[in-house]
Amino acid sequence: MSKKITEEDVKRLLKQNNNKEFKSFFSTRVLAKIENYENIPLFGIWVANRIFLKQYFIAACVIFLVMFSISILQDGSISIDNLLGLGKFSEEDIINYTNPLI
């Protein structure tokens, strides 16, 4: 006759769960990665980092261009103030907003 699982059963099952293994030749694969890493010249690391950063750079440029285009279409002029959404505010408004105690 079966019985419902108890906390003790769960603990017992968990204790049996400590026989995990990675795939074969694990140490060889780790060492191969380390050797690859060590063989990259400093210039290579610099280039690799550049490529890694490139993705973020391209994404930032695309976002900036889209916002810039929207700003030009809306206001008909190129202005950093408009781009930041501050075109409609005077200098005093901005100072009052950022530091209301003045």
Binding site: N17, N18, N19, K20, E21, F22, K23, F26, S27, R29, V30, L31, K33
Partner: peptide
């Protein structure tokens, strides 16, 4: 060193992430 501690790390990582390539990569 890896061969000595591989099983210990495997137990932690595979139990945390499940068996598969991801666990193997994290183990490495």
């Amino acid at each position: 060193f890896i061969e000595r501690y591989e099983k210990k790390v495997a137990n932690t990582v595979i139990n945390m992430l499940g068996n598969g390539d991801v666990a193997d990569d994290v183990g490495q």
